[in-house]
Design a protein around this nucleic acid. Structure first.
Lengths: 196, 196
DNA sequence: CGATTTTTTGAATCATATCAACGTACGTGG
DNA sequence: CCACGTACGTTGATATGATTCAAAAAATCG
């Protein structure tokens, strides 16, 4: 499963943002490798330096932090066509505060910090690509803060399941509750309401 | 006040992230202009396309959104050495959801979308610079979501005033309350507590 | 100085958390 | 393939952090 990297989805994704020369694709294919992982695989652990960046081809990752009370607070999910890493740890090569873990068996593309640096040096178009996707992610997270502040937990859940109906089925409810910022009990009560 | 742009703070900031050739600085100086604005100046308005990116040399900007109830929800502040724009609107050149406004008389550096594109084409090191600072901002916003979820309003306020004691003095309390995600009344009550 | 904006205070109310108990599903080994 | 144990989901009672509204007090600005 390491020999024929499934680059196609990534290349298509990149081409939505920048134009890629054939040479760039070649460089890309030597630097990125694909990886299939089982559910619950931990890719990067809080306290250790995060050396890799992950592109989800299929499956789902979560990024979480351990709270003071010892719970796992989910900060972000990554599904198809999303990059995930602990940006702070990856970029500064300092111990990360977050843990990254698969919540489904997943098919990933993986690139290490050193490979990425070499890749960016050879294919500057990708520097722009990565800037653009982080800008999107940043925008989305600011909008998310707006919703967290201005909608009730129930409203956030209903909006989320309207926007991502399939996803709500895929992950356990307690993870959804954590991501949306309330308790599993509360989510259960919300669901009980509309289920008549 | 338009003739001698005060580039120095920006150049120092850029050099924390990437190395700049003299040629890059020259290009920079032809594309960026400086601007002094009075308090309450609106730089970019919700509903209109955001054409500029702002670097704060001195002063303070806020980015806010109008809530359903007609309030102004502050999503982000920018002080010295911060870039601010509505990234989504600026990048896609689509109507913005946020408004950007000065909260103090401020000294800014301003660059337009078209100037930035030309600048990035001529000085690719800046592509990397802008990627790195957005990554930082994104990381910070994820950490912020963690704190919003896992600390009470009171804890968030105390932490914030421990981290930015001068800043807490600078902006009106109702803005701080909005940024921290609770009502001005509640902030007043928090302060009343420890003030004996 | 007066007028407007900002902050404070108190009482009633609401959304969500907490805790504990019970029900259900699920996957692993016998 | 069943049984058991563990993980996950539900329900109800009680507790709490934060909101709302209204009004008064304080600060700021032209």
């Amino acid at each position: 499963m390491e020999n024929t990297p499934q680059l196609t989805p990534l290349i298509q994704h990149i081409r939505k943002f920048v134009s890629l020369a054939d040479a760039d694709i070649k460089t890309l294919s030597t630097r990125i490798h694909s990886k299939a992982i089982p559910n619950k695989t931990i890719l990067s652990r809080a306290g250790e330096v995060c050396h890799e960046k992950y592109f989800v081809i299929k499956g789902c990752l979560r990024l979480f932090i351990h709270t003071d009370e010892g719970n796992e607070q989910i900060i972000q999910f990554a599904i198809d066509n999303w990059w995930m890493t602990d940006y702070m740890s990856f970029e500064m090569q300092k111990p990360s505060t977050f843990t990254i873990q698969a919540v489904e068996p997943s098919q990933l593309l993986v690139i290490t910090k050193t490979d990425l640096e070499e890749l960016l040096a050879k294919a500057p178009a990708l520097e722009r690509y990565f800037r653009l996707i982080v800008e999107r992610a940043y925008s989305a997270s600011l909008t998310r803060i707006h919703f967290i502040y201005n909608q009730s937990g129930e409203e956030r859940y209903r909006q989320f399941s309207r926007l991502f109906p399939e996803f709500v089925q895929r992950v356990p409810q307690y993870m959804l509750a954590s991501y949306l910022g309330f308790t599993p009990e509360f989510l259960s009560k919300i669901r009980a309401k509309r289920k008549e």
